[in-house]
């Protein structure tokens, strides 16, 4: 039953965070700093991963549609699978793996060195000081990263489709353009923001509740990335059901 207790503690954590922020401005100047850190750190990883996701979408679409004689449909396949589902979830997993683990380990290290207690002694609410800027920053940055992921995925799959598979590039882009519209992009942005909130809350929670010492830090970082990515994928299904179902 220990997971139930953890769930309750997580709800308490969210409640405390909300209470720490009512009628109070976020810590001045920290948000943009965190946004810069999260965004710039995750960007190279995200770019590389979305390049490979795009290349594979093209290859698999080609392999799946060739027996039916529908190689031309690869563009549609890339647009629907890549933009609607894969780009937001790839961005979320990479931000969880890079920025989320970093949040968890930073806070866990502060916990180990008793810097969190030191904040409390100085009458600064640690949730307000440590979590609020990260939460605002990730909500600000996630939609931008999602757009970057979408663009990179489509660009790299276009490259593979034309250079490696010998498809018609113009036709590919036409299929991409007709299969998705502005509503899909808005849905992606919404998904990105929600995933950002989940990643930040889960990672900071794992950091705050970590055990002391090196094992505690490692354990907190480990569970942060696992829980964050599993809950993002599960939420992704619910959001898709609501937005497209």
């Amino acid at each position: 039953m220990s997971w139930l207790a953890t769930l309750g503690r997580f709800a308490g954590f969210c409640f405390d965070l909300a209470r720490a922020n009512t009628f109070r401005m976020p810590p001045p100047g920290r948000t943009m700093e965190e946004a810069y850190r999260i965004g710039v750190q995750s960007l190279p990883v995200l770019l590389l991963i979305s390049v490979f996701v795009g290349t594979n979408l093209s290859l698999q679409g080609y392999a799946a549609f060739t027996p039916l004689g529908g190689q031309r449909l690869v563009g549609m396949f890339v647009a629907l699978a890549g933009v609607r589902e894969l780009a937001p979830i790839i961005a979320a997993t990479m931000v969880a793996a890079k920025a989320g683990t970093e949040m968890a380990s930073q806070i866990a290290v502060m916990r180990t060195r008793e810097q969190v207690d030191a904040l409390e002694v100085m009458a600064i609410n640690p949730l307000w000081w440590l979590v609020t800027p990260r939460l605002l920053a990730i909500v600000l940055v996630m939609p931008a990263l999602t757009v970057v992921a979408i663009f990179t995925t489509i660009a790299s799959s276009w490259l593979v489709a034309t250079a490696q598979l010998g498809l018609n590039g113009t036709e590919f882009l036409d299929f991409v353009r007709t299969s998705i519209d502005a509503k899909d992009l808005l849905a992606c942005e919404l998904k990105g923001m929600i995933f950002g909130v989940v990643i930040c809350l889960v990672s900071c929670f794992c950091g705050f509740t970590s055990a002391k010492g090196p094992e505690g830090v490692g354990q907190a970082t480990n569970s942060a990335v696992v829980i964050a990515s599993v809950s993002c994928v599960t939420l992704n299904f619910l959001l898709s059901q609501v937005l497209y179902g």
Binding site: T101, E102, S105, V109, T112, V217, T221
Partner: peptide, 12 residues
């Protein structure tokens, strides 16, 4: 301890 966190991060 911070190094352990960093190595876990880099691993993933």
């Amino acid at each position: 301890a911070a190094g352990v966190g960093k190595s876990v991060n880099d691993t993933v």
